[in-house]
């Protein structure tokens, strides 16, 4: 199956800063790919290179088989882009906003109107079509942003930190929409996904986020740091890399245990979490550390109440591999 997004060797410099450096990634149809990293890691620049808003200094991008440089129009027609600070016209209604974005993208009234109604139904804004955008709640504004990005029936959806700072309830709703978009077979709702793609799977999504826990909802995750993808895989694959290497410790006094635990042979890293510690141990050393640590620390007068292996989080993975 042809990849929906194929980026190879992307580089973008701003002055001396390599914002994106030798970045390659592939997104399959129906896949949700999460680009995770700190502010300034290069996430937004990557999305802008892929949607064609920025020209790379090196490398190439193809979208659904169209080369972004040579077949710019066709490539960009496949893309829906929701920027981090999506700006809508607060003094226009929901429907008028969608109309504006549809017409900018060259859709005729007989195309955009029926699609808009269907998309508003899908994102749950059908009852609010005549409300001014300025009077929508944060979560509803975000859904309007998504609706505007969907009106051109993109096959690839680029979402730049759509859930930063929003209510977890809203975030949950938003993710349910995204997952429905990618997992609904096209025949169920042909006009959102294009009328001639009967057997095609749903859209694919490239989403950037600063939240590690959000990465766990993606099919595949790439961690970005200083413009590069430092590690990539499915959440399951990534966690498996630290399988059996994270131990949870409860005891007191925790501050003292934290300092001593770091010196126990086999312990690579110690992290405090409020009422407990997480230890990362060398591969194959978990059992040895579980024996050694209480033996070594208890004579110091500290009490160790529990020490057990726990599943690694994606944050553990990011830290271990960066």
């Amino acid at each position: 199956m042809m990849a929906h997004v194929e980026a190879r060797g992307l580089r973008k410099n701003f002055g001396h800063l390599a914002a994106v450096n030798a970045l390659s990634l592939t997104i399959a149809p129906g896949e949700i790919y999460g680009l995770v990293g700190a502010d300034g890691a290069g996430k937004t620049t990557t999305l802008r290179l892929i949607c064609g808003a920025l020209k790379p200094d090196a490398g190439e991008v193809s979208v659904c088989g169209f080369d972004l440089r040579r077949q710019t129009e066709q490539a960009r027609e496949q893309i829906g882009y929701l920027s981090q600070r999506f700006s809508m016209y607060e003094d226009l209604t929901v429907l008028e906003n969608i109309r504006f974005f549809a017409e900018v993208r060259g859709l005729r009234p007989d195309e955009w109107y029926p699609r808009s109604l269907e998309i508003l139904e899908f994102v749950g804004l059908a009852d609010f079509r005549d409300r001014f955008a300025g009077q929508l709640s944060g979560g509803m504004k975000q859904k309007l942003g998504l609706a505007s990005a969907l009106v051109t029936r993109p096959r690839v959806l680029l979402l730049d930190e759509p859930t930063t700072g929003v209510d977890p309830v809203t975030r949950q709703d938003f993710w349910q929409l995204i997952i429905h978009l990618v997992s609904t077979p096209t025949s169920d709702s042909p006009s959102i996904f294009g009328e001639n793609g009967g057997s095609r799977r749903g859209v694919s999504v490239l989403i950037s986020t600063p939240y590690m826990d959000e990465a766990a909802r993606c099919h595949r995750v790439g961690f970005m740091k200083k413009g590069q993808l430092i590690v990539e895989g499915t959440p399951g694959e990534l966690r498996a890399r630290l399988e059996g290497r994270i131990l949870e410790l409860r005891g007191s006094p925790l501050t003292e245990i934290r300092h001593h635990a770091a010196e126990v042979p086999g312990v690579e890293d110690v992290q405090a979490f409020g009422d407990r510690l997480h230890l990362r141990v060398e591969s194959g050393q978990a059992e040895a550390v579980m024996r050694r640590l209480p033996a070594q620390l208890q004579p110091m007068g500290v009490s160790i109440d529990a020490l057990r292996p726990v599943p690694a989080t994606l944050e553990d993975v990011f830290i271990a591999f960066s």
């Binding site: 990293g37 700190a38 502010d39 300034g40 890691a41 600063p210 590690m212 740091k225 992290q271 944050e315 990011f318 830290i319 960066s322």
Partner: peptide
């Protein structure tokens, strides 16, 4: 806000 997990830890 906005720093990577290493810096955060």
């Amino acid at each position: 806000s906005g720093v990577d997990p290493n810096a955060r830890r």
